Measured scan of single mutants.
Amino acid sequence: AVSDRLIGRKGVVMEAISPQNSGLVKVDGETWRATSGTVLDVGEEVSVKAIEGVKLVVEKLE
């Protein structure tokens, strides 16, 4: 699937994400809805860990 190529890629949070609410991330110039187990603020760099349906699962870049 086209989304599989995104796993491991870096992105930037465009709309804040929390465990309760999905947000938006931009990866390779495309905007995706994303979820995370932690709070991520706009502008934070993330990496794509998995894909669930049409949402990316991301975590903060260390």
Rank of each mutant, 00 (worst) to 15 (best):
G11D: 01
I51Q: 05
V39D: 14
E52K: 07
E44P: 00
L56F: 03
V58W: 00
P19I: 09
K60S: 08
G53V: 04
K55W: 09
V13M: 03
A34H: 00
S18W: 10
E15T: 08
K26I: 09
V12L: 13
N21E: 11
G8Q: 03
E15I: 06
T31E: 15
V48K: 00
I51E: 02
A34C: 04
A16N: 14
A1W: 03
V58K: 00
E44A: 13
V46C: 06
T38D: 14
V2H: 07
S36V: 01
L56R: 00
S47N: 13
V12D: 05
K49P: 01
W32V: 05
A34T: 03
I17K: 01
T38W: 11
A50Q: 13
E52Q: 11
G11E: 00
G53K: 05
K10Q: 11
D28R: 04
S47F: 12
N21Q: 12
V12T: 12
G29Q: 12
L24P: 01
E44N: 10
K26C: 10
S22N: 12
G43Y: 09
I7A: 03
G37L: 13
K60T: 05
E45W: 10
V42Y: 07
L40H: 11
D41Y: 12
E30T: 04
E15H: 07
V2W: 03
A16W: 09
V48L: 02
A50Y: 10
D28K: 04
D41G: 14
S36G: 06
G11L: 02
G23F: 03
K60E: 04
E45V: 10
K55F: 15
E62K: 14
V39Y: 13
D28C: 07
E44V: 13
V39C: 06
D4Q: 06
E15L: 08
T35W: 08
N21S: 12
L24H: 10
D41N: 11
E45L: 13
V25N: 00
Q20H: 13
A16M: 13
N21D: 08
G11C: 05
V25Q: 01
S18E: 07
A50I: 03
L56G: 01
E44L: 12
R9V: 05
S22F: 10
A16R: 14
L6A: 03
G8V: 02
K55E: 15
V2G: 13
T38N: 08
N21A: 12
V46I: 15
D4M: 04
L61A: 11
V42T: 08
W32T: 03
N21P: 02
P19L: 06
L40W: 03
E45K: 11
N21G: 12
S18F: 11
E52V: 13
I7W: 03
V2E: 15
E30S: 04
N21M: 13
A50S: 09
E44Q: 13
E52M: 08
A16S: 09
S18Q: 11
M14P: 00
M14R: 08
